[in-house]
Design a protein around this nucleic acid. Structure first.
Length: 573
RNA sequence: GGACCGAUAGCUCAGCUGGAUAGAGUACCUGACUACGAAUCAGGGGGUCGGGGGUUCGAAUCCUCCUCGGUCCGCCA
């Protein structure tokens, strides 16, 4: 593994701080926010001065004196107490050489863990809509990043295929389409049907108490394994999963397991019973709950309601127990809406109290809600939710239109590329936002392919690839990067930041760190490309080959970064 | 009533453990295509970082109060 410039520099600075007798906690080196003055900076000397009650200038002089950077950096100590560093040409050349040889060379390694990512989490009988994008895209990006960083990753979609919602749906079908229960006339059920029945059932359940009771009874009957209900349920499952898989495939989301809540049904009774026997769970108002600590101010975790039905508190515990037994993960990440924060606090605390958890870490990798331009949860102009399928179609059509205008592609190739661009726009639009904050979904902005977008980054890759081809045709091949110019400096330093951004993305579970890095890299690449001609009159072959060498390194990292985000790079666009 | 999250340019968002002139994109204005691909690049205008107080040599960042949003608060998931 090749060390990055900043890692190398950090080691030098740490050593100097030690030699000067200062705590290395003050030695942190960062990318300079004043690129006109320096590549990297260390601000810790003012902290040293404070803690040692001395003048920062003295501390700076001491560190400067103790600093040995083997000719790779130049140091400068300025006014209030900033230690500025500039990488030498030799250091920049070495960095590009390593990155060009293998874009993965700069990435650091983590202590390998087995991490389970629970993402997706769609409910049956509902088609996916834009609200499902975040879990799908953030979750999938996270899987790629975690695996690339060296973790062993397994994933599970954790379908909402059980519980009252299904009881409601079945009750609704009983009322409007009793014929569907007759096995001999197996009429097909479509997503369109479910799309109609499900919201109706949900609304009726809120308004109509009699319906609600029937739905509860139906739920219990289903959970008890009633034959008629189970056969209907299975048909709903089949049609729903086909629809879900279609959308997930199109987004490129992969799952180790496509399990649902129903899988744990058999475990619920015995689990709750055993917890009751152990004294962890106890009766409360006719229900069975786990009381959480008083000082947490959390309500108790409900395991079984007063009707004898099991809720998702029990299901979530059973799911964890099952995962601990079968996969033995070191950590389970729940890529789930932030609105469920309290629920996960309850589940995690409840799980601890069972004594079954061991060393496994449970994390709620929460994300904010998707709002419309009015700041309220996203709705289309017609007031409904936008189907994910429709969003993808609209994006595809916009990309197709653009490609037709460009006139470089046609036929099947054009369609394939339009799809790659559409998915890139959607994914980057999602991934460039911090997952924890809410964000505003604006179709106008999604349809934008210029500026800070996925297609912009793809376009950068396509152009560099095209340049490489032209150069080869002209008899020019990339060589080692030797000609360090001011224009190249920014690009090299951006290449250097990859490892730190990757590490941060993995630590914080935020793919946005990588998304923004890839954008910065594309930006730096375009900037360099624009002002450093390769194939032009009067450009010396050595200089051109050196430029190509740098661009090759940039292209390698762009491709890698996009792959990690789950974004494909078209050959042409 | 309790708890959590948020408020940064007209709009959409970055800003890592407090640091040197608060950054992008978009929109607006200007310049660069007989093209190494203009889905690009270069430049310009635009900000009392929601408000008050505090800590500090130094605050968008930490503490506190207030205002305004959003979310959650035992038998839905």
């Amino acid at each position: 593994m090749q060390k990055t410039l900043i890692e190398t520099l950090q080691a030098f600075v740490n050593a100097a701080f030690e030699r000067a007798g200062y705590d290395t906690k003050f030695a942190a080196v960062r990318v300079s926010d004043r690129p006109d003055l320096a590549d990297f900076q260390c601000n810790g000397l003012m902290g040293v001065a404070k803690s040692q009650k001395m003048n920062p200038m003295e501390a700076g002089a001491a560190v400067l004196d103790a600093l040995d950077m083997e000719g790779l950096f130049e140091a400068d100590f300025v006014k209030p107490g900033f230690l500025n560093f500039k990488a030498t040409d030799a250091a920049l050349r070495a960095l590009v050489a390593a990155s060009a040889a293998d874009p993965r060379a700069l990435a650091g390694r983590v202590e390998r863990q087995k991490i389970m990512v629970d993402y997706g989490g769609p409910n049956l009988a509902k088609e996916m809509h834009v609200g499902h994008l975040r879990s799908a895209i953030v979750g999938h990006g996270l899987i790629n990043l975690l695996a690339f960083a060296g973790h062993e990753v397994v994933s599970d979609v954790h379908l909402g295929d059980w519980g009252l919602q299904l009881g409601q749906l079945i009750t609704q079908i009983e009322e409007v389409r009793p014929d569907l229960f007759e096995d001999e006339v197996l009429r097909p059920i479509t997503m369109l049907d479910l799309q109609e029945w499900y919201p109706a059932a949900s609304a009726k359940s809120k308004a109509d108490e009699a319906f609600r009771d029937k739905a509860r009874i139906a739920t219990s009957a289903l959970q008890a394994g009633d034959g008629r209900y189970m056969r209907l349920w299975q048909r709903i499952v089949d049609v729903s999963i086909a629809s879900l898989r279609r959308d997930y495939n199109r987004l490129g989301c992969e799952f180790t397991y496509f399990y649902g809540e129903s899988r744990y049904q058999e475990m619920l009774g015995p689990l709750v019973q055993s917890l009751e026997d152990k004294g962890v769970a106890e009766p409360s108002d006719g229900a069975i709950v786990i009381h959480l600590e008083e000082d947490t101010k959390l309500p108790p975790l409900m395991l079984r309601n007063s009707n004898g039905g099991y809720g998702y508190g029990a299901t979530d515990l059973a799911t964890i127990v099952d995962r601990l037994e079968t996969d033995r993960p070191d950590a389970i990440l729940y890529v789930v809406d932030a609105r469920q924060k309290m629920h996960f606090q309850q589940v995690f605390l409840g799980m601890e109290k069972t004594g079954l958890l061991g060393d496994t870490q449970l994390e709620h990798t929460a994300f904010g809600t998707v709002n419309g331009t009015d700041g309220k949860p996203f709705k289309t102009r017609e007031g409904g939710v936008m189907r994910l399928h429709d969003l993808m179609e609209e994006m595809h059509a916009a990309a197709r239109k653009r490609l037709e205008e460009m006139g470089k592609l046609e036929g099947a190739e054009l369609e394939k590329t339009a799809e790659q661009i559409a998915i890139a726009a959607i994914k980057f639009g999602e991934l460039s936002h911090d997952r924890e904050s809410n964000y505003i979904f604006d179709m106008e902005q999604f349809l934008q392919f210029e500026g800070k977008t996925g297609p912009y980054i793809q376009y950068t890759c396509v152009r560099i690839a095209s340049l490489m081809e032209n150069a080869r045709a002209a008899g020019l091949e990339p060589s080692a990067f030797t000609e360090v110019s001011d224009g190249a400096r920014g690009l090299v330093l951006t290449l250097d930041a990859f490892a730190a951004k990757l590490a941060r993305a993995v630590e914080t579970r935020k793919p946005s760190n990588m998304a923004l890095h890839v954008y910065n890299l594309a930006n730096a690449t375009n900037s360099f490309y624009q002002s450093n001609r390769v194939l032009a009159e009067g450009v010396a072959p050595d200089l051109a080959a050196s430029h190509l060498g740098l661009l090759a390194a940039a292209k390698g990292q762009l491709d890698l970064g996009l792959t990690l985000l789950g974004i494909e790079v078209p050959a042409k666009m």
